[in-house]
Design a protein around this nucleic acid. Structure first.
Length: 195
DNA sequence: AGGCCGATCCTCT
DNA sequence: GAGGATCGGCCTA
């Protein structure tokens, strides 16, 4: 599912207008049923009040808070009772760029060069901030329902070469090739060698 | 009831 | 490249 999500669009209808970005970097985290088990995953020890969305149906948002100040967003990917998911790590801004800059607290003029574009949505918590995604408002939301304010959409974009690397920022199962990104896309997080 | 720590980001050197 | 912010959630007792 992770590489298949690359190139899709995440769209959020807000009071300030539509915010949308293309998914350019993701990571896969596996449920407790996986073989081998995935100790880096939130679902590794089974369901808890925090991660219960992951054990529900596929296509729903799992939004959690981290370090007391940020959010990260995942998409549940398996049938009920299982808990695999995809973490969104970077977007390429498409719509509502000015509002994204405001959400990120960046003073941004009309010009959107590659460097500023990266600052908006290259990172799992940066993209939540730019898109206005919070646990209170969006955890558990159905991303595949046209009626949802937050959705994943397919605009027909054709994906090029996919870069596969280990996952970032974890301490367990550090070597598995479960991070996927559009190779060469400037909005992918991390150093140049990871793009 | 208490302690520990994180799928991060920003600032400063 | 290193260190601090900051708090909800999970584990242990």
């Amino acid at each position: 599912m992770a590489p298949r999500l690359l190139g899709k669009v995440l769209a959020h209808r807000t009071a300030a207008g539509v915010l949308a970005g293309r998914i350019v970097e993701v990571e896969a985290y596996q449920g407790p049923h996986s073989d081998p088990p995935d100790p880096a995953a939130h679902a590794y020890r089974g369901p808890t009040p925090r991660n219960r969305v992951l054990f529900g149906p596929a296509g729903h948002a799992y939004v959690y808070s981290i370090y007391g100040r940020y959010f990260c967003m995942n998409i549940s990917c398996e049938a009920e009772g299982r808990a695999g998911c995809i973490l969104l790590r970077a977007l390429e801004p498409l719509t509502g760029v000015k509002q994204m800059a405001r959400n990120r607290g960046l003073a941004m003029g009309a010009a959107i060069d590659a460097k500023l574009g990266r600052l908006l949505t290259s990172g799992p918590s940066r993209l939540c901030q730019a898109m206005g995604i919070t646990r209170a408002a969006h955890n558990g939301i159905n991303l595949l329902d046209q009626a949802s304010p937050l959705q994943v959409q397919d605009d027909g974009y054709t994906v090029g070469e996919v870069l596969v690397t280990p996952r970032i920022g974890i301490h367990e199962a550090v070597d598995r090739p479960l991070r996927f990104a559009l190779r060469g896309n400037p909005c992918v997080s991390g150093a140049k060698s990871f793009r």
